[in-house]
Design a binder for these strands. Structure first.
Lengths: 206, 206, 206, 206
DNA sequence: CATGAATGAGTTTTCATTCAT
DNA sequence: TATGAATGAAAACTCATTCAT
């Protein structure tokens, strides 16, 4: 229901394969169950047998596919962060007007959240204290890409002359806020809401 | 060092007492240790004996002051959410210009985060799956207050005509983003950065 | 490389067949892998899937040839204890001078250890808590044979008049000690060392 | 029943204390239970909850005193190897006649085995694959001491001119054999048997 | 009051054995 | 016949909670 389809495109440096993770249906069921539970209860709040039960496999089976719970969560994170990165950054037109690019990025983020709400919650609602270096680098690479976009826009006088990280994290944070608002029942993330919030953020950073 | 001093003010409906939690130095040490550990490792990632050690008390002592770990974290949450609420909302002048009020709110939020970074991280970096009804209501009351402020501003044509929850959660989320940006080493939250980000958010919501 | 060739000789009561154990190459590979692993890590320290991997067969295959791990180790023990017995006792000349017989036994033991170091380690370095009655009897039969030899020598005034078991176990134990000394790097078991140690033991028991 | 009394004497370099192992009755009960079970079933054949049950403590209690099963077995080994070393080597008269010294050593070894049969079985009946460097060094230090004794005797023409390690390991191995003979019901280790076997070994090495 | 040693239920992980292919 | 993926029972280990002191 909520598994990455790996529509790899080359916008950002990518590791072409999925580095040793079996794509068997069991492995996939385990990853799916983990995603749902980690999104809901967090990593430390989720017991491995619970994952097994939800995945419909024996507890031991998880360890046939993943060395440990920590390796599992890192693979899950890498998969989804990669999907997120690709969904967000693939084929961003280098020479399009900043306004168009921004709209594209915002809509893609919203699409990702709508299509993969558990993945979005898993990625954004928690402090990932267990991330390995690869995943830290992967996450930073996304910010780096966005920082490049912003810096070029700043050079053209489009974006405010503040540290790009400020704008990036504020915008990403604002979107997390939107999703939380919906969770809190304060908002429905309709197409209209996405459009309005996009305009709000554009106003913010220009 | 980082404990709420309960400078109660009447801006928001408050429960006058602290609901049965002793204010003994031991209880305080336990709450302080919990805050530091929950902020760093999360609720499920923190063992009670570790709290005891950091608090300099016996493990059993924790259970003299708090029925259970879950009760403890709810009390901790309530205390800090209350401090946050009071720090943010106390004596907000009802008739001041929206721009001034917004600046005040932004600066108060920044002050709170600077003075109590652990409390801020505890409150905002995690999904609080264990919150009791009281704490849920307390959290919502803050949003309700802000929603009133926004709605009045909207009525005067100052703020965008979108669901107030959208603006509130986006602004709060943007500030969380700023703090994360600092954690990620992408930003220093200087006075200038606070001023700039405030302006950005003001532009966003108007 | 290290598998018993079943050169059955009739020195000691032998069960003529190999009691239901197939002699297929797979069964042999499993026995060889088991021997290497049990010698190195002990019975309880060796996982069945590891045996399978080392044998180059599937884990399930082991159970086609052996009912259980315990049955496997008993078969392995029987095979090697039998080889040991045959290598030690086959065609011992009944009427040769005790000194010659002793030298022959000592050299045969050394030959066995040199040719099958893993088998020797498996047989002698561990407490075999899992042995079935057949294997216990098999092991005792070797001691019984040696006891007969010693008793005859005692009757001729060649060996010390002490319980034969004392001499047998001391000599066998001394040889185990020699092998351990080599493992510990305190000794090289050269032909000369074998000769010297033989003389030492001969002196001991006469 | 079978716990080291630490009658420290200074014959061999010793670490004066017991390096961080609590001497509480619980820790002692755990060590005693471990000794009995490891002696009977080996390290890998003994489950921690079984140790707990035999010790009359909860399973978790073991981990209050010992970091892990491996640390536990190393501490147990160190304790008993130290007791063995002290029992064997304390105050060995440097200038006594070799024969007297040998008798003393032999009797001390027999005394240790008689007084602490489980400890002797634990120390000598198994391959200790888990030993840390400290314990390896400790074990070697005993052999080194004995090697010095033998080398001096060889210089005086008392002992055979073979590598001292050969004599040491043969004698120690012979004694292990005696104990196994008794286990096998082939022998009773009476005072007379000890005396006779001592003479046998003396004959062997001279 | 305060403790911290003790615990057993629960955690992560392993492994002998099975069974669908 | 051979497999190796799958498993659940049991292993090692952790931790929220209790209770004797």
């Amino acid at each position: 229901m909520d598994s990455p389809q790996s529509k790899h495109t080359a916008a950002v440096s990518g590791n072409g394969d999925d580095s040793g993770v079996s794509d068997s249906p069991k492995a996939q069921a385990i990853l799916d169950a983990s995603l749902a539970l980690f999104a809901e209860k967090g990593y430390d709040g989720t017991a491995v047998p619970l994952i097994a039960e939800k995945a419909g496999v024996g507890a031991g089976t998880i360890y046939r596919y993943f060395e440990s719970k920590e390796v599992l969560v890192n693979i899950l994170y890498r998969r989804w962060r990669t999907v997120f990165r690709d969904a967000l950054l693939a084929d961003v037109p280098a020479d399009a007007p900043p306004r168009e690019v921004f709209t594209m990025l915002w809509n893609r983020m919203a699409d990702f959240q709508r299509e993969h709400p558990q993945a979005y919650a898993f990625l954004e609602f928690y402090n990932h204290t267990y991330l390995n270096e690869e995943n830290i680098a992967l996450t930073e690479s996304i910010v780096d890409f966005l920082a490049g976009f912003l810096r070029r826009g700043q050079d053209h006088g489009v974006f405010r002359k503040v540290p790009p990280g400020m704008l990036i994290f504020m915008v990403l944070g604002a979107f997390v806020g939107l999703v939380r608002a919906e969770s809190a029942g304060r908002l429905e993330l309709t197409a209209e809401a996405i459009r309005e919030s996009e305009e709000i953020c554009w106003r913010a950073i220009t």
